[in-house]
């Protein structure tokens, strides 16, 4: 990038120019918000999918592994643009907030009003605390490496504890059919889903569980490691897609 305007000759916008520039800010913000609501939400629905939709998929193993890993993608790319082009440390928070808006809208309209599921059965998870920390770290470090390692890890590690206050109460046992199930499992049994038999749930399976009761921390650390790589990958995807050639003409 060549600095076409020298430091000394720099004049901030004033008057009409400032007003137009401000209007442009709002236009971009609104469009970005809708774009992220649409695109990130679609990406999330197709990758995390059922783990995020249903309360009886939110297990100790796959949910805290898959959700941050797929959730850090768009924030990383948007952080690149927002930070490297505008020094705005809000890319991750903006993305995750947009995702949550989209998620809440579809849970209420598509799942509740259209398909009759109680909303508490399809409550979304939050990744906002992780996204905030990701933005703070990028702003304070101004470094891809530091943000990928510490931000990526924080994003993954904060996921389960920030959601436990929401979903913990669905893990209280209930007696059903001479056995114990969680309230979450009871939702899955009672509220009929034609295309979702119980065995289809990918939960609590495989070798991650072999270390006794420590399924969640193991999953979270595994996710933290992968998030570091995923963050870097999507940072470069953000770089690839971003261009300021339109701005240069202004």
């Amino acid at each position: 990038m060549s600095a076409t305007i020298s430091n000394r000759s720099f004049r901030p916008y004033t008057g009409e120019k400032a007003r137009i520039s401000r209007a442009y800010d709002y236009l971009i913000l609104v469009l970005a918000l809708f774009l992220f609501i649409g695109a990130f939400h679609l990406h999330f629905a197709l990758t995390v999918g059922d783990w995020d939709f249903w309360v009886d998929w939110k297990d100790r193993q796959y949910w805290p592994l898959v959700t941050p890993l797929m959730g850090i993608t768009f924030p990383a790319a948007v952080q690149y643009v927002m930070w490297n082009k505008f020094r705005l440390p809000m890319g991750a928070t903006l993305c995750v907030a947009a995702l949550l808006i989209g998620t809440w809208v579809t849970r209420i309209f598509a799942y509740h009003y259209w398909n009759f599921f109680p909303i508490n059965m399809v409550l979304p998870a939050t990744m906002l605390p992780g996204a905030l920390v990701l933005d703070f770290i990028l702003m304070l470090s101004n470094s891809l490496t530091v943000t990928a390692i510490f931000g990526g890890a924080a994003f993954a590690l904060l996921f389960y504890p920030s959601n436990w206050p929401i979903f913990g109460m669905f893990h209280v046992p209930v007696e059903q059919g001479n056995g114990q199930v969680t309230v979450a499992d009871l939702f899955g049994f009672q509220y009929i889903r034609t295309g979702m038999p119980e065995y289809l749930r990918i939960i609590e399976r495989g070798t991650l569980r072999t270390y006794g009761q420590y399924a969640t921390p193991l999953s979270a650390f595994c996710s933290a490691l992968l998030c570091t790589l995923m963050y870097t990958l999507w940072w470069y995807i953000g770089k690839w897609f971003s261009t300021t050639r339109y701005l240069n003409k202004i």
Binding site: S6, A18, L29, F86, L88, M90, A97, T126, I250
Partner: peptide, 30 residues
């Protein structure tokens, strides 16, 4: 969700209240 949503909104507004894209881009270039 409201609790974290309010914190996140506060952080976003903290930045959005200032002149954003074009002015910041120009400053960065300068």
């Amino acid at each position: 969700h409201a609790f974290w949503g309010i914190l996140a909104t506060a952080w976003l507004l903290w930045w959005v209240r200032r002149p954003l894209f074009i002015p910041r881009y120009r400053m960065l270039e300068a």
